[in-house]
Design a protein around this nucleic acid. Structure first.
Lengths: 134, 134
DNA sequence: CCTTGACCTTCCAGTAGTGGGAACCCCTAT
DNA sequence: ATAGGGGTTCCCACTACTGGAAGGTCAAGG
């Protein structure tokens, strides 16, 4: 099948699929006209990549997962390690994003949001001991 | 003061400060030798930017916040709107990141992580109806 | 046969926010 | 005179695409 069909079936933009070929994640053969020809196995790989990316795995993680996916002699421990590392990264991100949200929510609540210039949000951003910038 | 001093006082890498000048967030004058000369007001701006960035505001948000910071006739409502929009973006991000974590945590728990090839993580990534890739 | 339109191709540029490094200038101290 | 520790510009790399331009291919209709 051509890139358009595989794109709609895998749910990935054609641009992205070309990019994945560029970095060696898929290697569809070419027809006489230069068009990429995708086989079912290529489609499966792209679906796999789409799902892994949607779980936030990096391209390099995906490369590793793909290699394991295609390796009949893999150990599930290797897969699990990649997933656990990613899980820890997500947890760290969640923690820092949560801290951001709490700080920001506090600032937003403390701001009147009216026509006056007085604003605790700006005051906080300027720092504890900062006066007017002018 | 020179870029090195303002860098350590603002807690930002010199590279970042040059970048901020490049995109017009700060405009330190130059001395006869071509060196940037930072005034106290420039330092305050950089501290402001560093704090705003650490709360996850985008560069464009920072540009808007800076303009309001320097505008004596601002309305705090304008500041609050930017902060609220950002807060909503963070909340959405937290939601999707949380969903990722839950899915991933479930997969990690279900994987034996031993020497066997059988792996629910790969099975899930491959999709519900996918067989072996070979 | 020609045109139209959808599809395909490549390449280039840009995104955010730096990080790294080259190559070079400037200032101070010894 | 020289050594070091500043500073300067410029360019490339990164993540993971996304958009656009310019042009080749294919199938259908007049």
């Amino acid at each position: 099948m051509n890139i358009g069909e595989v794109s709609s079936r895998a749910g990935l933009p054609a641009k992205t699929i070309r990019y994945y070929e560029d970095i060696g994640l898929v290697r569809p053969p070419r027809g006489a006209n230069g068009y990429r020809h995708f086989r079912e196995a290529d489609l499966h790989k792209l679906v796999f990549l789409g799902r892994a990316r949607s779980l936030g795995f990096s391209i390099e993680d995906c490369r590793g997962l793909m290699a394991l996916y295609e390796d009949r002699a893999r150990a599930s421990a290797d897969v699990k390690r990649i997933a656990e590392d990613h899980l820890h990264r997500i947890d760290r991100k969640l923690t820092e994003l949560g801290a951001m949200r709490d700080t920001l929510a506090h600032l937003v609540r403390s701001c009147a949001g009216d026509e006056r210039a007085d604003c605790p949000i700006l005051a906080d951003l300027a720092g504890p001991d900062a006066g007017s910038p002018l």
